[in-house]
Design a binder for these strands. Sequence first.
DNA 1: GAGTCAGTTCCATATTGTGGAACAAGACGG
DNA 2: CCGTCTTGTTCCACAATATGGAACTGACTC
Lengths: 271, 271
Amino acid sequence: MMKQDLPDISSSAFAHNSGTGTLGKVLSVLETVVTSDRPLRFSDILALSGQPRGTLHRQLSHLVEEGLLTQGRDLCYEPGLRLLKFAYRSWSKNQFRTVAAPHLRRLHEETGETVHLGVLRGTEIIYVDKVESRQTVRMESQIGNASPVYCTGLGKAALSVLPPERLADTLSQLTFHRFTANTHLSVASLTRDLDEARLQGYAFDREEHETEIRCVAAPIHDAGFDLVAGISVTGPAYRVTMEQLENWARPVRQVAMAISEDVEIRLGPGR
Amino acid sequence: MMKQDLPDISSSAFAHNSGTGTLGKVLSVLETVVTSDRPLRFSDILALSGQPRGTLHRQLSHLVEEGLLTQGRDLCYEPGLRLLKFAYRSWSKNQFRTVAAPHLRRLHEETGETVHLGVLRGTEIIYVDKVESRQTVRMESQIGNASPVYCTGLGKAALSVLPPERLADTLSQLTFHRFTANTHLSVASLTRDLDEARLQGYAFDREEHETEIRCVAAPIHDAGFDLVAGISVTGPAYRVTMEQLENWARPVRQVAMAISEDVEIRLGPGR
DNA sequence: GAGTCAGTTCCATATTGTGGAACAAGACGG
DNA sequence: CCGTCTTGTTCCACAATATGGAACTGACTC
């Protein structure tokens, strides 16, 4: 019985397995399935989750029964429709996004390039909205997507305003992965970058996440740092030089501050 | 202790409370919060859920801890970012949607009006994709949204192909709500409409959900009826006459059949 | 037809959730 | 200013629920 026969987790993203009891475990399973790139069969999940067969089987059954997962013809588990339903509501009702939306549009008109709005969540930036230059790509783009903090302009902007102890905490949880030649790979090099961003009030992404993609981002946050986010202007390297980005830094920062104020006023003086 | 002191549910959409144990209950809570129109405080949820205070409190805490909900300044609970993250993945990976996408585009080019793709889930149609005439509205539109089966073209198209016993089952679960003067309000009148749709192979929405909005829809399904869905062309009444819809019926139906085939071939011969 | 490997089912056990009640902390309101 | 709601949070004995080892099915291989 004891839980120490699988004393720690060998495999994957199973870390925070505590506090929320049953729910946490089930969500871990859900997350592995949903965030995996390829369809997973029972045994795949079994390996990833490190849970006993019987347990996992019941968890998956429940998830399917609840519509959060679907089990397709090939016995592969896929995200279910109920998730979509949840998502639509979460997005369309998101107050922060609603407040920020007009500002995004303004910034887009000023720069002509793609504008992103992202919120810090743990060690990730979640994209909650964007305005695109041309409607080439649609929703698939970014919304709801999560990127690591350490290689995105938004991420670095957000980190740059965190109170020291929370920053330290976040940094300690990072695991680096090289996306491009410019990706930060250590807390040390990232910290230098953050120091610069903190002084300037904005951060760059110098092709650190994707080659040929650059951006400037500025931080947004509320008084209590309950909400830490950022706004950015992104463009392809061939069209957007670093000089261009430098010029956009000021407007981006101003818009970010405007949003911060709006948040404080319109969602604000409670807490 | 016994659970029979609140023997039935007075308030709201708390019905299927069984089978999945703890998870089901927590998800019910999540759903009430997410689908509510206005922000909910603890007591609001308490009233809606009909659960004991202590229990509900813990459930909400866990949901917050897991990032599925956020508790804002005013103590109101709102959908959390993790939901968005989940959703994005579910959508972008959805195989059915991916397979159908090119067909949607084709149908849009042919008609010039908005094309929707929706999947049947219980008594609802969930919109999983669309191609719009003009990019006036963005994601907020429909994707992930759920509409009742009985008043949408997609819903009726989907119902029209269900095997009799499953249809009966679904019909018995319907509760009608008048959206417009044309909304079906009884199983009888809906059934007549479905019979017609079954014969023709396509269904209309004659301003039954929203006034001034019409559509034609055709059903899509796989061999085992695991997937029942539909595709539709929608337009404003001032621009799209019923004659026009009649003319589009054939192409819509053909595209629907093409998708059905594609599904069978590309996701198919396993099960 | 013995041997894997993937998926499913079972059941005694103990972990986890339950819900009544008591406790804080505001917000009236007289 | 002191009772008195109303709202949110905490506690804890108890019971429902999840757990996980083992045994079972069945398909595919050699």
